[in-house]
Design a protein around this nucleic acid. Sequence first.
DNA 1: GTACGCACTTGATATGAATCAAACAGGCGG
DNA 2: CCGCCTGTTTGATTCATATCAAGTGCGTAC
Lengths: 248, 248
Amino acid sequence: MAQPITLRQVSPLKASCHQCSLSNLCLPLALNENELDRLEDIVQQGRIFNRGELVFEQSTPFRSCFAVRSGAIKTSIITESGEEQVTGFFMPGELVGLDSMSSDAYACSAKALERTSVCELPVDRLEELTHKIPELQHHFFHLMSQEIQNSHQLAMLLSKNTAEERIAALLLSLSSRFGRRRMSPTQFSLPMARNDIANFLGLAVETVSRVFTRFQNQGLIRARGREVELLDIEALQLVTRESSRQRC
Amino acid sequence: MAQPITLRQVSPLKASCHQCSLSNLCLPLALNENELDRLEDIVQQGRIFNRGELVFEQSTPFRSCFAVRSGAIKTSIITESGEEQVTGFFMPGELVGLDSMSSDAYACSAKALERTSVCELPVDRLEELTHKIPELQHHFFHLMSQEIQNSHQLAMLLSKNTAEERIAALLLSLSSRFGRRRMSPTQFSLPMARNDIANFLGLAVETVSRVFTRFQNQGLIRARGREVELLDIEALQLVTRESSRQRC
DNA sequence: GTACGCACTTGATATGAATCAAACAGGCGG
DNA sequence: CCGCCTGTTTGATTCATATCAAGTGCGTAC
């Protein structure tokens, strides 16, 4: 299934934020042509990482944020006790590394979950540019604030919700994030292992596995390994809101 | 116990970021005199809220961030199902509202836990100023990134740690935050109710209460109501790291 | 083709914390 | 001063999920 060559196609060496289909996700829409040019100047496009390769490593000097173009990245922290804690999954159009902007070293490690293409944004040049372009500064405040909210959301999920609710929420989140790209929101391949899901959601692997089969038996999903099909999105949404089964 | 009037005292109506003892906490040290003046121009100082009063309310138009001068603030979200979820506690020198910078409405509500004095920072003017002062922009990136890390830290605590570990971690966090101010890090009054602690840490009130008495019986703390004394900080630190009791 | 390792699934049991229930303390208004 | 309301503590029971223990399936190397 070879991709037909279109007129839009340009040399991969040439910076091309203009053409990037993700631009409205990872970049502000409000930039004008000139501003986009200046942004392109500092962005290093098209770096490729193979599955399992580190995009950056915790405690090494913080140099750049990375925008995911294709593939998927997981971020994780190694605690003092040596355990890994998965802090997030990043899909195309999403920006990795914002949590490190408060220090000189990366606050977490980022690993490619599959073959992954990224754009690198060196922070020193980025900060210069955000200073020059108010819209861009605003956009970064926006992105970081969003990340805080996401993390609060996650904390809520972890502190208040059952295993089923957490997993349903993750599946729906992935679904909508795949959907924002041209991909099917109901049928996709999980980029991460059950282990990563468990770690991220604060569950045991066995529990994740059990919930997957339970969902399957209830006809909510069809899952074979990492291949997942969401059969009944509304029912899944109901599961996540099931926290309201309280005192009604 | 009347506070003796000192020479440092100025009219409360006059902006005084220069004199504020918190300046190295909530503001960047790197600002020069002129820049501090410009910051003072936009800061509305000395607003007072009584216990229980809302500093701002979720879903109302986002206008300002607030720096806590004295007292304490809790932030919380009301979920669709109507439950409250406490997302954070803010002590003097800390900035509230950064999570709302991605939208036009406040992402959470902020309530004074005791009589609380704040400085108001209107965002529109703040964004203008950060645009003009690169140091200030850098500082805000720093603050927001810190907030993301805090939230990740909380998520980790909630997903991996036991009730005792969570509560020990909270006590130690409060201790160090009181310590940064001129206050005792070992003896203080909790600004929040057991209920808020429980909600914040994803526990039942009863569990919080039980852990407090357990800590007391073990000689780690002395607690009577909201009055708390940390008797053995090292032991408490050991509790939080107890997660490493894994396979040793 | 077979064997090894790894990711995943399934079952049995143990346990930490929630829930239910009730007593207790302190602050406030009458 | 008493009674009420709210916040806190304590005890008994239940339940969800971790843990322990096998087993299964699949991809890869030999």
